[in-house]
């Protein structure tokens, strides 16, 4: 009815989440920072801020990759395992004397392959995304442990390990990596046709197919991007902790999904952005950081994170209902 047409004439989300929601999240982040600044002297120190940025950076990159998948109405549970696995791979390659650049390229290529495998399972074998990525979650950790025989591989390449401790223009290099990922991700999702296809497939894949969208290729793209982001984070983690260990990054997939959802991504698909999960990741990192500074029991951090997910998604639901 034209009636309903006019009803939604207000601020309607054009692609994914609205600017208003993004600003609300940014506001929340700023409020958190101001409150923590008042509550503790240790917060606004250069040391702590760069620590916070480093903490948030890896989740943020995972969350961006995850968001591509969630927009297609899928889920990638494997990203944490991919991070641990690829940290082993890069450490292993470096230990075997492979040149640094080649080790990095090869590790990223493994990320691509894992994504290809996921999409193959979904598209060709007809497996639900939840299942195929759950399967890789457990088996990648197993493979990683097999390679290292259950131990860790230390990384002796100083150029590699120094990277994560370096700053550039006073900002930690890990945070720069967020920008390096976010800008092309933004162009891809919001400015290129492939981004539109992700939304269309997530909204109604049959309609997209009949409109000439290559649905299979779109799904491949989403999962490849997600696990390549995860492999990239695996490199960053290996650089930061100086070892390769398949049990690292336990539960990071949930952090990534939580960041994405807090950032306004809908698990039903077809709603999401790049800036949302970035903000979501740094909100989570701030809560963790603040809780540490305030000496809040780390168990409480988990509880707070859970409550925050409920509150933010609930308010987002209210907002959406209101605009209908």
């Amino acid at each position: 009815m034209s009636v309903e047409t006019v009803e939604s004439a207000g601020p309607t989300p054009k692609r994914g989440i609205s600017i208003l929601f993004g600003l609300t999240l940014l506001g929340l982040l700023v409020v958190l920072w101001l409150l923590l600044g008042l509550a503790t002297n240790a917060f606004w120190t250069p040391n702590n801020i760069s620590n916070l940025l480093r903490q948030g950076a890896m989740t943020a990159i995972l969350a961006v990759g995850q968001t591509f998948v969630i927009i297609t109405a899928g889920i990638d549970l494997s990203v944490g395992a991919v991070v641990g696995f690829t940290s082993v791979i890069v450490a292993w390659l470096l230990a075997a004397g492979v040149p640094l650049w080649l080790a990095i390229v090869a590790t990223l290529a493994i990320g691509v392959l894992i994504g290809v495998f996921h999409a193959f399972g979904i598209v060709r074998m007809g497996l639900p995304p939840f299942i195929i990525t759950l399967a890789t979650l457990t088996s990648l950790r197993g493979i990683g442990l097999l390679i290292t025989n259950g131990s860790t591989i230390s990384i002796t390449d100083e150029a590699f390990t120094n990277f994560s401790r370096a700053d550039f223009l006073g900002i930690p290099s890990l945070f720069w990596m967020v920008i390096v990922v976010a800008i092309p991700a933004y162009v891809f999702l919001h400015l290129s046709r492939f981004g539109r296809y992700l939304f269309a497939v997530g909204s109604n894949s049959e309609a997209a197919r009949l409109s000439g969208v290559n649905v299979n290729r779109t799904i491949y793209l989403a999962y490849i991007l997600s696990s390549t982001c995860a492999a990239f984070v695996g490199l960053l983690l290996a650089s930061r902790i100086g070892i390769g260990n398949a049990t690292q990054a336990e539960g990071w997939e949930l952090q990534a999904i939580a960041s994405s959802v807090i950032g306004g991504t809908s698990l039903f698909g077809a709603v999401g952005s790049v800036h949302g999960p970035l903000l979501g990741a740094f909100i989570l990192a701030t809560i963790n950081n603040g809780a540490n500074l305030l000496n809040v029991n780390s168990f409480w951090q988990r509880i707070i994170t859970g409550l925050l997910i409920i509150v933010i998604v609930y308010f987002d639901q209210l907002r959406r209902r209101g605009s209908r």
Binding site: R15, F199, N204, E206, A207
Partner: peptide
């Protein structure tokens, strides 16, 4: 079921075949 991406804007639905 086959025609529209209902929770996406009209504009995207119209342009879907011609984004290339």
């Amino acid at each position: 079921d086959q025609g529209l991406c209902l929770n996406l804007p009209i504009g995207l639905n119209i342009n879907l075949p011609v984004f290339r």
